[in-house]
Design a protein around this nucleic acid. Structure first.
Lengths: 157, 157
DNA sequence: GCTACCCTACTCGGATATGGAATGTCCGAGTATGCTCGG
DNA sequence: CCGAGCATACTCGGACATTCCATATCCGAGTAGGGTAGC
């Protein structure tokens, strides 16, 4: 899994903490976490395309959550960055055997493919259970200092 | 996820079908599925190192299951080929912030890392529930022709 | 003093390099088989 | 005829290319804000 996922989730949590409607400066955020600014920006673009974030150009511009944090799950972010396709793709090598049995859809009938789909489904469900709002709340409850530090840093010019 | 996983699981199922103690020729198996022989061999080597397969050199050599098929899970194969490390690695970017709070282990306390671990655990448990023996049995029940075709092909010189 | 215009600075957006891992290929090490030669 | 030794063919094992994607970077497009000039 790409590194950008961790960055993106942290960033979304921070955006959940900032007042709604107020964009967060991408470069400033990268500076805060010591991340490559341009690359973080690139990841945000994927999130915009996926409908997780919205972007504001120009001075005082930046990124902000496109939906309420309760309606954004970790799965949304992961899928936006890693792509919608499941990790395991059945190449249907059963279709390569000599004189293959006529079969419309190997991926549907193949038991291996089914096993992989089941596992991926469990994985996605676990990620879909965690919303940005939930993570933000728990984090604030357990590490209240982090929130004020971020907000202070982003507010400071 | 690498392509080799699908090949390896199919191959292990076939090895579960062949008489115990009798090695399966890697090149012949690759020919059957129209796979690059040397590369399939390379994947098998990883499985040998992981203790899933055993190898026999020389004429009439090949690979065979190192344990009874009931004791080999799909997870064993995936971990052998993809590595033991979880897909998500917490880089603890919280430790990069200015004046970070003293914390021994970010990965343990970070909620994002916990979420990812939970999801990966669910994924692994789903894969660990499926044994090679189980897949082999179900496959034989639903597609009995496949088994005889494989065994015939491997038996033929 | 007020308003309309322009100019500048700032930020996102996509096109462009780079590195490392997954993929694919090749030749050497080791072994069982079958043949040969001697007893 | 029988057995030991040897040559051979076959298979695994790891070292060596190649391709592709994640990573990283840069410059152009568009916009908000402020400054300026005219009324």
């Amino acid at each position: 899994m790409g590194r950008g996922v961790e960055w993106a989730v942290h960033s979304c949590v921070n955006m959940a903490w900032t007042p709604p409607g107020e964009p967060v400066n991408s470069a400033r955020l990268a500076e805060f976490y010591k991340l490559p600014a341009a690359y973080l920006n690139k990841q945000f673009q994927s999130l915009v395309r996926a409908g997780v974030l919205e972007s504001v150009s120009g001075p005082h511009g930046g990124f902000l959550l496109a939906r309420r944090p309760e309606n954004i799950t970790v799965l949304d972010i992961v899928l936006a960055l890693e792509g919608q396709d499941p990790a395991f793709r059945c190449e249907a090598i059963l279709g390569n055997v000599p004189e293959p049995v006529r079969q419309e859809n190997f991926a549907r009938t193949c038991l291996i493919s089914q096993t992989m789909r089941q596992a991926e489904l469990a994985w996605r469900q676990a990620l879909a259970r965690q919303s940005i709002a939930g993570i933000a709340d728990s984090m604030e409850r357990r590490f209240p200092a982090d929130k004020v530090k971020v907000l202070d840093y982003l507010a400071a010019e």
